[in-house]
């Protein structure tokens, strides 16, 4: 910034001295830079692009937030687009009451956190096994592990649905916890990969010295490696939690007819109930738009809060999978 003002000052001084050739060169330098990438035009382009992409990205979120505060009059009034005429919490009150929000939220957190914790524990153990030991068929098993990422759940869901109904696991959280604890949870391959990459980077001399002191392999893992891996553990847990929280396809199948429902599913149910009550095009249905958006906001709110506090962890996650190659 200082440099910018100095250049401006120099240009003005040069123009006062009627040295237009040098002033012209300076102006050109200012806008185009020495090799274009350090000029003003380039900077302006970058920020303009970033701002417009940012707007496109945030548009639905902003739409959701502002419209959820609108009254019926505001929604019908085409003149009101972004800022509601007055803050109206009626929509939120409706949702909080109708969805029984706080109980549903606790249910949803329980429903997402238990498989997430199981997946974190199991993928840490499995990743450690793959990273630190050599055993026959290791390469094959590792490839098979990565392949599970591509297999869509539609293939496995039918036999699993039958298996769960046979063992009376349908409608209970166990249908999610059991696969997770055996390393087959949602995107399990990705989490194993994160731990694999992390444990591989730690020098082997560390556990050799511990073994000389008489520690068993299990003790080496729990006393030395787990404390080192805490950043990875947090990342894996956060991702797993978020993905389980947002998961609706499989939970719609496994938890059908159960009272234990994730918040997004409950919201869907609630919306469907309401839209069937009011006829198409009626005013009450127009009002519902805002109520539904308020429901959306409340569903996403826990995740948004979580993201607000932990966004650094999310953002550094990809580095830890090591897919960029070391």
């Amino acid at each position: 910034m200082k440099k910018f003002f100095r250049t401006i000052k120099e240009i003005i001084q040069l123009t006062f001295k009627k040295d237009f050739t040098h002033a012209g060169i300076k102006v050109k330098r200012l806008f185009m830079g020495v090799r274009f990438t350090d000029g003003l035009i380039y900077k302006f382009l970058i920020y303009a692009l970033l701002l417009s992409f940012g707007y496109v990205y945030l548009y639905p979120v902003l739409y959701m937030l502002t419209n959820s505060f609108m009254t019926m009059e505001d929604i019908i009034d085409a003149g009101v687009r972004w800022i509601p005429t007055k803050l109206n919490f009626e929509n939120y009150r409706l949702v909080l009451v109708e969805l029984n929000y706080f109980k549903s939220l606790l249910d949803a957190i329980y429903l997402a956190a238990s498989p997430a914790i199981s997946a974190t524990v199991s993928s840490a153990i499995i990743g450690y096994g793959f990273a630190r030991f050599n055993f026959p068929l290791k390469k094959l098993l590792f490839v098979l592990m990565l392949m599970t990422f591509i297999v869509p759940p539609q293939i496995t869901m039918l036999p699993m649905f039958r298996m769960f109904s046979q063992y009376k696991l349908l409608g209970s959280i166990k249908a999610f916890v059991y696969p997770a604890i055996l390393g087959q949870g949602l995107n399990g391959a990705l989490f194993i990969l994160i731990f694999y990459q992390f444990f591989r980077m730690i020098p082997k001399s560390l556990d050799e010295s511990a073994q000389l002191d008489g520690a068993t392999p299990f003790k080496v893992f729990t006393r030395i490696y787990i404390p080192l891996a805490i950043p990875s553990i947090i990342i894996v847990f956060l991702f797993s939690f978020v993905w389980y929280y947002n998961e609706t396809y499989l939970s719609g199948l496994y938890l059908r007819g159960s009272t234990l429902l994730s918040l997004p599913l409950k919201l869907e149910q609630y919306i469907n109930n309401y839209t069937s009550i009011y006829p198409e095009g009626s005013q009450a249905r127009e009002l519902m738009q805002a109520v539904k958006l308020a429901g959306n906001v409340l569903t996403l709110l826990p995740l948004l809060i979580l993201y607000f506090f932990t966004q650094k962890r999310f953002v550094e996650s990809i580095d830890r999978t090591g897919i960029t190659g070391e």
């Binding site: 153990i125 096994g129 055993f135 390393g183």
Partner: peptide, 23 residues
């Protein structure tokens, strides 16, 4: 070493057989 390694990924092998390969 290989025995210890296999015992660490044992849960994955079981899970793979039940929740991936069989389905």
């Amino acid at each position: 070493q290989s025995l210890i390694g296999l015992s660490f990924i044992f849960i994955w092998i079981v899970g793979y057989l039940i929740f991936a390969l069989y389905p």
